[in-house]
Amino acid sequence: MHKYANPTEFMRIANAVLPWAAGVTVICFMVGLPLALIASPADYQQGEAYRIMYIHVPSAWMGLMVYSIMAGGSAGFLIWRHPIAHLVARASAPLGAIFTALCLVTGMLWGQPMWGTFWVWDARLTSMLMLFFLYLGYLALGEAFEDPERGDKAAAVLALVGTVNLPIIHFSVEWWNTLHQPSIFTMKGMTISADMIWPLFAMVFAFMGYYVCILVLRLRSEILNAKIRNARSARAAQPMSATTTAATQGAP
């Protein structure tokens, strides 16, 4: 595990994964979009409006998955001070926030024609909105302190506290009655016909591939940022004596 704590070693693997992830993303979007928009049949009760599902459901799953990764990375950072775990969490947060926002807005666009309203405060919609605020809180806390280390820790703690919301989102449609439908995955199998599930899976894989691509690019960017900061503080310290170095290091 400590082998992967070394950023250079980790990025060697990440960079090798990137072209494959990019390939999966492009192919899955090229297959998934025509299937979702044209080839898949209209739904018996929702007609063509159900095609919003092919954006809404992958975004929702990614919102949850990315949060789990972010929380795992935060735990790795808080317990083992694992630098890569922290960077993965940090680089994932904007992605998760965007997926969750996309889920919420496409849900509104779907709810208006089908339910007759774009928003209700039922358990599923409310807990999903909470997830979005948790992402925003994580992003804000990371920048809220003068000392970046303190901000990182505060954000990581928030990410862990927020994991309590994940089972609530998942089970909200089972524990309470909601306007939102229950999951298409039931004990008896899937409640969606085969010519609709494959386009959905293609879109889910496209979203996953996209997440990996952007994650790798953001990790590169984060590591460069750390190097730039180090180079700057080293340069600032250079002309001065050793005793003043410690005092200047905290300055921006």
Binding site: A42, Y44, Q45, Q46, M114, W115, D195
Partner: peptide, 18 residues
């Protein structure tokens, strides 16, 4: 005062439903 439609989790083509 307000009536909302609730749909279930079944998705299928019309022919299959028929």
């Amino acid at each position: 005062r307000e009536v909302l439609a609730k749909h279930d989790e079944n998705y299928m083509p019309r022919e299959v439903a028929d």
